[in-house]
């Protein structure tokens, strides 16, 4: 049991526990802040999966951008959304949630079985044999940058156009209605 495994299990428990609390709680503010904890634990998991650049991007964009945006929308939509959230029944097993619980549980069982039948695809085994696995301690940021600008240039441009469209669209949606 080395320290990486211990850290991995701690991160996994924090991520799943805080996600469960996010789903369980009736309080909207608590839900948003526990989602914050989930995102940080997931960034830790990315570091353990040897993807440091993705982890830093996750912290910058999700925690710095998306979460602040959600909090902002929540404060603008005011008191009534809080009331709507707290008016639900506060029992753990309540009959209205039973179909949702059943759906999520059965989905998990299906995915778990699919995972047990065929754990590693053929290309993963080939990558392990030919030594293409990322080793701890290698710095890959330069490689990521070169690949982003050469091999994956088309998806990069597509995503930048899409981001601009989304920006213009959300600015258009949230302006004040004057002449309809």
């Amino acid at each position: 049991m080395n320290i990486v495994k211990i850290l991995f299990y701690i991160m996994a428990c924090v991520a799943i526990g805080s996600a469960l609390y996010t789903a369980y709680t009736k309080n909207l503010v608590r839900s948003v802040f526990m989602f914050f904890v989930t995102l940080f634990a997931l960034a830790g998991l990315y570091v353990i999966a040897l993807a440091d650049f993705v982890a830093v991007t996750q912290v910058v964009i999700y925690v710095g951008g998306i979460l602040v945006l959600i909090l902002f929308a929540f404060m603008l939509s005011g008191k009534q959304s809080l009331d709507a959230a707290t008016r639900q029944k506060s029992k753990i097993i309540n009959l209205g949630n039973l179909p949702a619980l059943l759906l999520a549980g059965l989905f998990f069982i299906v995915m778990f079985n699919a995972l047990n039948n065929n754990v590693e695809p053929a290309w993963v085994k080939a990558a392990v044999q030919s030594g293409k696995v990322i080793k701890p301690g290698t710095v890959l940021i330069g490689n990521i940058g070169v690949n982003l600008m050469t091999k994956y240039l088309l998806p990069f441009e597509a995503i930048s156009v899409l981001l601009m469209i989304a920006l213009v669209g959300s600015a258009h949606l949230s302006r004040k209605e004057q002449e309809a």
Binding site: K132, L140, Y152, G169, A171
Partner: peptide, 29 residues
């Protein structure tokens, strides 16, 4: 983790993060 040469997994993870940001902005509006 199993692709050191092309980094396809990490690059598409970055794309997915950007997509999530765009989704959230529009959905909140």
């Amino acid at each position: 983790m199993y692709d050191r040469v092309d980094n396809s997994g990490q690059i598409f993870a970055l794309f997915a993060i950007v997509l999530a940001a765009a989704t959230t902005a529009v959905a909140l509006a």
